[in-house]
Design a protein around this nucleic acid. Structure first.
Lengths: 191, 191
DNA sequence: CGATTCTTTGAAAACAGTCAATCTGTGTGG
DNA sequence: CCACACAGATTGACTGTTTTCAAAGAATCG
């Protein structure tokens, strides 16, 4: 599992073997079966999670029992509940595997210490957060200026492979539209 | 203008007078009249902007000429076009003063250098970005799980003073609903 | 005051959500 | 290997929400 993690870091910045060993030492590996939780609403989230293989989703359940997906996280991306992580409050989100997955968890304290010790890591994480911010902003933008159909088009462009990996009703949930509406959009587009 | 900026930093972390002097040295002050642009679509954004007084908005204009507001930035907050800042591409957003405003601009290179030199500043900016990320995530969440009326309610809770400072149609634009719908929601709520 | 900007209101049309039924494909246990 | 259950996708009819366009009323500013 660590080879993937190592390859990821080295594609981003130069990391010495000792530095990586320091990361590896505090990392926790976890294998998830499809539908298994990585985090459940109500628990406190204290990690940074890197997905080596598979796909996990972060979602919330409203009063009516409906799920709303805030993030899909495929391999080579990071996930977690940043609100719970920062504030220490119970998580409002669930994180669950959409496929059998392999995940590396790094405890918050350890990662914060490493960030201080390794400036290159600190800079990288800043860039990463910046890019995450931009992509969230694009999503807000898409939500406020597009119709359901345009949002779906943009989703396909932004995440071309996702449509093959997750059921349609989850894409609908991610976009904030009903599964039926998405089905109609798709049949409409074909013509 | 710098007193406000200085007070802001000192409320966040301890900053020596020399450190602040280093910041002040590279900072550019700018006064904006209401409706004056700070950034126009197409230009490249190369600053971090701190609003000392007033209120600015960041928005985008679609093909039909409609404006979509992505951020309101009141005094003591930061603004800018992070996409253009990071990539060096032309901005897709406009930034414009909603009120007469006073803004401090710090050029990108200088700020990056200062971030390296002053670890406390670096940590603070990381926290700031993290909090911005969380609030954007809350907004996405609100967009995908709430109706227009619920989104408006949440807006009032999240930004209680904003409703008095900006025209209603801008709030509608921020929420991604039409000005007419917002007007109807408001008259409906009164009863 | 006159001009502009902002808000409200009405009526029609477009859009999206809900509920219920049906259809499809997949995988599991007998 | 089949039958069945189950999750997912589609479709139809209906309801409800939101947009659009147009017009008229406030409010604000020079």
């Amino acid at each position: 599992m660590f080879e993937i993690f190592y390859a990821y870091f080295n594609s981003k910045f130069v990391l010495s073997q000792e530095d990586f060993a320091a990361i590896e030492q505090v990392a926790i590996t976890r294998k998830l079966r499809k539908r298994q939780y990585l985090l459940q609403q109500g628990d406190v989230w204290k990690y940074d999670a890197f997905v080596c293989k598979g796909l996990v989703r972060t979602y919330r359940v409203d009063e009516k029992g409906q799920e709303h997906i805030i993030q899909f996280c495929p391999e080579n991306w990071w996930t977690g509940d940043r609100h719970s992580y920062v504030t220490g409050e119970p998580a409002r989100y669930n994180i669950e595997a959409c496929e059998d997955s392999e995940v590396i968890l790094i405890p918050k304290q350890d990662f914060q210490r490493l960030r201080m010790q390794l400036p290159a890591l600190g800079n990288f994480l800043y860039d990463l957060l910046e890019r995450s911010f931009i992509s969230l902003q694009n999503r807000v933008n898409s939500n406020i200026m597009h119709t359901a159909e345009e949002k779906y088009d943009q989703f396909l462009k932004t995440y071309p492979d996702m449509a093959n990996r997750v059921p349609q009703h989850m894409i609908a949930s991610f976009l904030g539209i009903s599964a039926e509406t998405l089905s109609r959009i798709r049949s409409h587009v074909k013509k």
